[in-house]
């Protein structure tokens, strides 16, 4: 398990979130709302794209608790890019959990693991589950 500081993470958990997609399906029996078709979640400089994103919201206050993205997720900020099979973005908590073949590239280093928790407010990431890092020998930049 490697504790790693993500530098230059410019995600701002309080910035307005814009979600665009081809369609939004609402299951009227359960109330589940799912964005489908090239879903793009944009917040500040952070972009998350996925095949489908389910909106989990609180009925009373209308507050979105979290966004559950599936079907191949890419997470991009000004300096990092990450890929995973699925992701859960907890908006109110300001944390992003990537799961399933996570591959993170930052500058010249690349890290892969099964699970990565990013605290967007603090800008830190926690990788767990088979962490491997690929270091470009030329510059000798090593993960802390």
């Amino acid at each position: 398990q490697t504790q790693m500081a993500l530098g230059g993470l410019t995600a701002d958990p309080d910035a307005p979130v814009e979600i665009t997609a081809e369609s939004l399906n609402v299951d009227q029996a359960t109330g589940r709302a799912t964005f489908e078709g090239e879903v793009l979640i944009g917040q500040g400089e952070m972009k998350i794209s996925a095949a489908t994103v389910e909106v989990v919201y609180d009925d009373a206050t209308g507050e979105i608790a979290r966004l559950e993205a599936q079907g191949g997720v890419t997470f991009v900020t000004a300096t990092e890019a990450a890929e995973a099979q699925a992701a859960v973005y907890d908006i109110s908590g300001g944390t992003l959990l990537l799961t399933g073949d996570v591959l993170l590239t930052q500058g010249r280093t690349a890290l892969s693991s099964q699970r990565m928790e990013i605290d967007l407010a603090a800008g830190t990431a926690q990788l767990t589950g088979g962490v491997r890092s690929v270091i470009e020998p030329a510059q000798g930049a090593a993960a802390q």
């Binding site: 307005p16 979130v17 964005f35 507050e63 979105i64």
Partner: peptide, 24 residues
Amino acid sequence: EAPRMVFSKGVRLLYDPASQGESR
């Protein structure tokens, strides 16, 4: 099947976490 509502041909939502729920 469950009854459903489908919004299609391009959906765009702007959600402001700061004003949780004020946008209703």
